[in-house]
Amino acid sequence: MTEAFLDVRNVSRRFAPRLSFGDRIAGKLGQPIDARVTHAVDGVSLAIAKGEALGLVGESGCGKSTLGRVIAGILPPSEGTTAVAGEPVMSQGPRRHKTTTRVQMIFQDPFASLDPRMQVGDTVAEGPIAHRLTTRAQARDYVGRWLTTVGLDPGFAARYPHQFSGGQRQRIAIARALAMQPDMLVCDEPVASLDVSIQAQIINLFLKLRRELNLTMLFISHDLGVVRHLCDRVAIMYLGRIVELGETQAVYAAPQHPYTRALLDSVPKLMLDDHETTAFKPIAGELPSPLAPPPGCHFHLRCPLVQPICRQERPPLRAVLPGRESACHFAPFPPGLRRLR
């Protein structure tokens, strides 16, 4: 593998509810406390090369957004480190904060991520001025340049978010991220709330930005089709862990983890024959609670191939084929095994 531009090492992120005063005293006195800790991200390591786009795919609650926020420096990890171009994203010590502007984030809902009472020009200029990428005097031209880059009229800078459609707002959010001149973008479901025709426009914008700015991207999505289109490699996440990682085309063609297989089989396909019907092969059961993940392999409760070892031992993410990692005890699977049941 090429040199890691983004280097995520053994990152975990847990969320614990604030304990009451009484519980804290009881804890200090050695009483067992009911710490309902959510293991959102559980020992994830991954690397992204310069200019590469990695898709991060999983269902709701799998921890993909939390991992994205850790990588973007919005949340400190409970354990582990992330670094961009050798520089750590977060400072160490008791009051951890983001120490780089090289990573910027784009969020799902452009109705929530823009301040409704700020002119969009000011929204885009705020960060660059604070970090001295531009000055107040030059901000107008600077903002205009980035609005043009994302396909908006520079004259829109004086308008407010409510004057824009969803697609245009997402362009503004992208301009705001780009105006910080990042090397890397973390995009959390950036097209999920957009209509199909607008989604295509934003996907095309991402393709253009990658070509022109050589951006490195982490693209978080539940939409396997969008990821296949935009990303060189894909990481499949299940209940806080990465279960498969590899080149997008190859993973889709021959998945090496039962969950990936099941996920791909769940996606409805466009049926164009008159009497064709999809044989839906829904994954049995639902995502277990991240408050109490099952022991061993997290997928074993729903896995059609489950064996006794899966209930006891956590399968490590390991190379199973050239350029492919899988966290299944039984990977690699023979090429003939297209269907699991």
Partner: peptide, 15 residues
């Protein structure tokens, strides 16, 4: 506009 029908990495035909 559906990415599933396009060649990966190519611009989608957009409306």
């Amino acid at each position: 506009s559906l990415p599933a029908r396009a060649e990966p990495g190519r611009d989608l035909v957009q409306i």
